Computed example of a mutant assay.
Amino acid sequence: MFDIIEARKRKESYLNDPFCKYDINTKPLISRYFKNSEKIEVQFEKDICDFTMDEVIKLLKSFDSRSRNTIILIMSYFNDYFKWCLKEGFVQNNNIINFFDKKIMEPFLKEIVPLEFLENKYITKDELLSYLNETYDYSLKFMIYAIFNSILGDEYEELINLKVSDLEEESQTINLITGRKVKVDELFIELMKKASQETYYHPDGIVESNSREKKYYKESFYVLKGYGNRGRLENEPIPVQVIQRRMRDYQKNVSNRWLNATNLYRSGLIYYIKNIFEERNISFKDAIYTKINRQEYRYEEEIQKHINDFGSNMTTRMFRLHIKDIIELIS
């Protein structure tokens, strides 16, 4: 008879055993994943170390993750736990196959995290333009368009410090507080100007707000303004929390909870690199994955330059990992 209390004690023993190689910061995370597995353990009346392949698939689906990389990480934690259980003699003799092994389970990742789960995390240029039509507020339109076009920085510093005076319209470039000079298009310039002239906040998308409930923007040196008392000139950029709150409002308007700065910025970076290589008739997938030999990628240094030009410190290797889940959507 399966005893959940004993199963918990077993996992605590594993986390305290020298065999468990993880540091003190990672162990609480593993403990939470163990805790989240208990419902499935009770359902199948067995410890996860005794799960069959079908049971492991159901367990991994229960995490309701929208990232295949997260599922791979969970598998790696449980894989080590299985090895410890096997060493300690806890694994039943009729089930000594480790179904948390990545080589065994990787073919099932598409079933565990279907491609449609990932679609909302990758935003194409056409989808971005359609999102612009989901709000009357030009400051919101400009916010997501600017992030897609690499205007972000640490703690949103490039975005919140942006002023109309930073624009060089003739050369279609923008000077950023970080020292970067970025090429922009006509739509960027149009949205930027209209955002700076916006009078009140439209949090409800294309639903007209009641005039009594309108939140009027303050006068400000900056393109993105706070709202409140309009009588005082605002000479400080808006706090990061305001940007994050407005992003949540936008998520509701477009019914996409994955519309956030991280996914917008990453999607913009993909679009940027994709266009550069397609001008040379090289597909994005070939640019990212073509190898010279077993270790070296053909366009590694060039892609790293493009990533840095976009304003990111990410390595090409990390970029490759970030897009692994969605390469089918990009291609």
Rank of each mutant, 00 (worst) to 15 (best):
P239K: 06
K110C: 04
F108N: 08
S67T: 02
S130T: 15
H322K: 04
I276G: 04
K324Y: 10
Y289S: 11
K324E: 07
E45L: 14
E213N: 09
I30T: 08
F100K: 00
F63R: 06
E278I: 03
W258L: 00
D204A: 01
N133E: 15
L118D: 04
I238H: 04
F90P: 06
S196H: 10
T124Y: 01
R317S: 14
E169Q: 02
I4N: 00
R245H: 12
R32D: 15
K214Y: 04
I292D: 03
F63L: 01
I71M: 05
W84T: 04
L233R: 07
F221Y: 15
Q304D: 10
K141I: 06
I72F: 07
D64S: 08
K324F: 08
S211D: 14
S267I: 02
P114L: 01
E12Q: 09
P114I: 02
A261T: 11
Q295K: 15
E300Q: 05
I147A: 03
L59D: 12
I97D: 01
I323R: 14
Y289Q: 09
D185M: 05
K21Q: 09
I71R: 03
K183F: 12
L152Q: 10
I174T: 08
D309R: 13
M314K: 05
V223E: 04
S165Q: 02
S171W: 12
K305V: 09
L259M: 09
I151N: 06
L15V: 12
N120P: 06
K110P: 01
R248T: 15
L176Q: 01
L329M: 07
E208F: 11
Y33K: 11
I327W: 13
N25Q: 13
F82S: 05
L187I: 08
T52S: 14
F2T: 10
